[in-house]
Every structure is written in C-alpha cells, then in structure tokens.
C-alpha cells in the first residue's frame, strides 16, 4: 500500500511539473498581456507601459520567467496578483468559500435526485417514468447553462419576483435565510445538468448490476425485493460511482464559470474568468496548479476508496 502511495505521489509531481510548464507557456505565448487593458483607453503612454512591463519583469525571456516562478513556487510563494496586488493564495482563499457553498449544495442535490431517478429508471426499465427521465436528461444536458440561468432570472426574479436576480446575499443583510434565498437560483441551474449526468451514470451502473448472477441468486434465496435492491444491487452499483465522485471533487472547488457569472456569484469560476481576461498570470497559474493538485488528489482518493469498498481489487505495486 505504501509503495503504491509513493509511486502515485511521484507520478503526481511529474505531472504537476508538466502541467505547469504547458500552462505557463500557453498563457504567456498567447498574444496580448496584462497591460492591454491600460492601452485601450489611450491614457497611458507607451513610455508608461514599457516602464511597467519592465517593473513587472514581463520583458524577460520566457524560460527565465518560468524558472523564477517555479523557484518561488517551490518555496511556497505563489506570487502577487497583477490586478489587486494581493497574494495569490489569499485571493483563492477569499473566493473558495462561495464556490464550495454553491457547488456542495448543488452537487448533493444532484446526487440525491440523480441516484433516485437512476435507480428507479433502472428497476422499471422502459416504463413511462424511465422514458420521461431519459428524455428529460437529454433535454437538460442539451440546454446551455447561460441561457437556462437567464431564463431562471427572467421568470423567477424579473417576472415573478420570487428569487433575487443574483449575488450571494443582500448587501447589509447577511442572514442565513437571506443566503439560502440567494442560493436557490444558481443551485437549480447547476443541479439541473448534474442531476441529468448523475441519473444516467446511476441508471447504467444499476442496470449492469441487476442482471448479475448474484442478484438472481439473492432473489432465488427468497430475499425480499427491497433487500435485494438495496443491500445487494445498490451497494455494488455504487462502486463505479466512487470513481466518478472522486473525479468530481475538483469541480467542487474550481467552480462553475458560466453560472457564477450569470448569477454574480463571487466564486472561483468567475475569478478564473476575470483573471484570464485580464491576463493576471500569477492568479491564473495559481488556479491552474490548485486545480491540478485537486484533480490528482481526487483520483488518488477515488483509487484508495475503491480498494477499500471492493476488496477484490488487489494492489500489486
């Protein structure tokens, strides 16, 4: 087990290095830069722009800039944002709470709903419910999130006035109920698509299991249907879901680009989008590395959990 862990960690480090190199290169080689936004207004002269580029070290060769970034990173210094001069980790920390709140609620909602729809659909395969669920999932998967978000705002905020049209809370009223009220809109939008995804996974996973021999054996033993489904089928059907959940962990913290923008949710997704459009290199690299670590950790945890949940999977490393 420990050799397995060491091996996986070594692989992860190499992967992180490669990710950082590619990320850094693509980011810096893309035309434009953090000074573009100052140039458009015509207020700053070329002399000013050149001086600031020099002060930020933007005019040095790319490999030098990368090595310097890497060296700082290795010492735990993630750098300062070009945009607001704050440490990158501080900026990530100040956005992660909002994202976690939104993603956790919507994911939990989606998993519960999705599992229920998926199981029911698998048990009553080709029933009216199953057909409707399948059609519904296809529709939900095809709806663009930004459009659906705007529809929710238009109908429930502008039209009916039931929900706020965005934000995490009303300014000056940060009460719990107020926050829940604000959470409903973006949560519904995000959950819609994920519910569809989860229900499809759950359905196919369950279908695979219910046709297995041991389920037939369980039924032949005369076990009640409820016990067959929950104790024998469901537990086994959950196994592949562990991997999916593990891979889903990073999205919990990296946020939803579109929904956060439409609903003015101050989370990681929007931070990423804003940082990209501003070419705030330190923050973009910070988020990139942060997400890469999460992806690697997520899959590692999924592998470990899988081993625990399913003793058949042997470790031979």
């Amino acid at each position: 087990m420990s050799t397995f862990l060491v091996q996986r960690l070594m692989q992860a480090l190499v992967l992180l290095l490669i990710v950082s190199m590619i990320g850094f290169a693509i980011l810096h080689l893309a035309p434009g830069g953090p000074l573009s936004q100052f140039a458009a207004s015509g207020e700053m002269t070329q002399a000013d722009l050149d001086r600031i580029a020099e002060q930020l070290g933007l005019n040095r060769p790319l490999p030098v800039q990368y090595l310097e970034w890497l060296w700082r990173m290795l010492r735990g210094d993630w750098g300062l944002s070009y945009r607001d001069q704050q440490p990158v980790l501080h900026i990530i920390a100040s956005h992660i709470g909002a994202t976690l709140e939104l993603m956790l609620t919507s994911t939990l909602l989606a998993m519960l709903l999705g599992a229920w729809i998926g199981i029911l659909g698998a048990i009553k395969r080709y029933s009216l419910f199953d057909s409707l669920a399948t059609i519904g999932a296809m529709i939900a998967l095809s709806i663009p999130t930004f459009w659906f978000g705007l529809v929710v705002i238009y109908v429930f905020s502008v039209g009916l006035g039931w929900l706020p049209s965005g934000n995490r809370y009303t300014i000056g009223d940060g009460s719990f109920l107020n926050q829940i009220h604000h959470l409903i809109g973006p949560c519904i939008v995000l959950a819609l698509v994920s519910t569809a995804v989860w229900s499809r996974y759950m359905r196919s996973s369950m279908l695979e299991v219910v046709n297995q021999d041991y389920i037939r054996t369980a039924r032949a033993k005369g076990l009640p249907e409820r016990s067959v489904l929950l104790r024998h089928a469901f537990r086994n059907a959950l196994l592949p879901m562990i991997t999916i959940t593990g891979l889903h962990v990073p999205t919990l913290l990296s946020g939803a680009l579109v929904t956060e923008t439409v609903f003015t949710w101050p989370g990681m997704g929007r931070l990423f989008l804003d940082s990209i459009s501003y070419r705030d290199y330190p923050v973009v690299m910070g988020i990139l590395m942060f997400t890469a670590v999460l992806v690697l950790l997520g899959s590692l945890i999924a592998d470990l959990l899988y081993g625990i949940a399913d003793p058949r999977i042997a470790r031979n490393g």
């Binding site: 893309a30 035309p31 434009g32 830069g33 000074l35 573009s36 936004q37 140039a39 458009a40 070329q46 722009l49 459009s277 501003y278 070419r279």
Partner: peptide, 13 residues
Amino acid sequence: NMPAAVIWGDFYT
C-alpha cells in the same frame, strides 16, 4: 477580430 487582451496588446500599441 480578436479577443480584448490580444487586440489591445502589441497589435494596437
């Protein structure tokens, strides 16, 4: 046409 961060970089200045 180009994205903002590209067009207002060297292309413009």
